[in-house]
Design a protein around this nucleic acid. Structure first.
Lengths: 244, 244
DNA sequence: GTGTCAATAAATATCGATTTTTTTAAGGAT
DNA sequence: ATCCTTAAAAAAATCGATATTTATTGACAC
């Protein structure tokens, strides 16, 4: 279970005394490895499987099948699926079980549009209320993202950076929505995997532009850079997904 | 279980052949009484108890206790609580169980502000895409709301009216968010119950104004009327809630 | 063929008991 | 008194079995 899951589900955190500064920034992975519940483990795995496409969109999620795959009981599986409902990754129909949330082009466009609207709102609020601590949090998250080589960990660092940008909006619900939409978008990116080519696109430069505008507290410039970043990605995916 | 629950949880609907027109408008209560699962029943009851304040904000929700109250098993209760997570009405902490979502003034203000922003967005999109069907849906919902005498059913009709206004935005996720925020706001209204006096306020007229602007497809006027409606309510509640 | 019905199979949902974890209480030691 | 450590109680989480509901199949009529 990774650090970001904690943001989404109610996981506990046992913090060491040292690292207080970084931890207060929510930038330390304070996950304890072995001792989470079977439900949480199932939640994390199923979440990853749906986001990655290992469990295809719209697929019927049979308890017995998942129970075997995850090597756990029916209760944790059911509970994990119920929790995944929050993230709009799983649908539940009474007495007919669960299925992975469907994916289609309409939905993709909706996600993209909403995401732009909500992140714009959140980023502007973050900048309006800017503090030195927030600034440092953003700079640090950006640095870590740049430094990462591994693709796996880059995804995590990338989300952390984007969420750090919004983290000063003082609006937990808005942040929650943005996090949800971020993940749903990632799912579509994974769904389009292979056909997506980020050729002739300097994502690093895009991130730099957002960062610089943000820490210079230029609302409009930061928002422009952010939305350009999303729309750029969106138009790549639009091509790849228009046929789903 | 009431009609609106269907909007939130994945309940099935067995529709009779007749009433097709009204049903297509999603304005018929197509709930079948006896045959929902224990989980769904628990979900509906717990939801109502949290919204009404019967289960106070922040309260520890012990499985055994709820199991007795609801006269059902532990599994349905756990599953219902897991589902209520989606609505931000219940919080879950791994291995420490569930509690009713906390309520505080900060959160209230956030809900109010977000709600204004999102409903404004949704209403404008609805009007932009206006059709005769949508118009009829709104008029009908409005009429039913006006007609209702019982306080109990008024609440339901009131939400139906507001959701009908947004129902043409072609944005299910946005509607979902608006529905969530609506309920969270209702919760604060219930929490402030007693101290709230709607004296010298003509809520009927406010609804009329929204309706008229909407069916005349005047985006700005409708949005103004809607936001005024919410901010009016908001300022009443602000006085009552500033001390929680 | 197409539709309906009953029988069977499969899957969901639920129960009751057990295991694991957390919380509370009690007893010393400093 | 405050801080650990340990024992007991309470609560959460999980398991395995069973009941309930839905989905599938095949026979039969039209």
């Amino acid at each position: 279970m990774r650090g970001l899951s904690r943001f989404l589900l109610g996981f506990r955190r046992t913090k060491p005394r040292f690292h207080e500064d970084l931890d207060a920034m929510n930038l330390i992975n304070t996950t304890q490895s072995g001792d989470t519940s079977a439900t949480s483990a199932a939640y994390a795995t199923l979440r990853e499987m749906i986001l990655s496409g290992a469990l295809p969109a719209g697929e019927k999620l049979k308890i017995e099948h998942l129970r075997k795959i995850l090597n756990t009981g029916a209760s944790p599986v059911r509970e994990a699926l119920s929790l995944l409902t929050s993230d709009m990754l799983v649908e539940r129909i009474d007495q007919r079980g669960f299925r992975a949330a469907p994916a289609n082009f309409e939905n993709f466009k909706e996600i993209l549009g909403l995401r732009c609207a909500l992140e714009d709102m959140a980023l502007r609020q973050s900048i309006t209320r800017a503090t030195a601590e927030w600034e440092e949090r953003v700079v640090l998250a950006h640095h870590r993202m740049k430094r990462v080589v591994n693709t796996e960990t880059f995804e995590e660092a990338h989300k952390t950076f984007h969420m750090a940008l919004l983290s000063n909006a003082a609006s937990p619900v808005l942040e929650r929505y943005c996090s949800q939409l971020y993940d749903l978008n990632i799912r579509y990116r994974n769904l389009a995997a292979g056909s997506v080519t980020y050729k002739k696109r300097d994502i690093g430069a895009e991130h730099d532009a957002i960062l610089n505008a943000a820490i210079q507290r230029q609302e409009d410039a930061a928002s422009d850079a952010l939305l350009r970043h999303y729309r750029e990605t969106g138009s790549y995916l639009t091509k790849a997904l228009s046929n789903i």
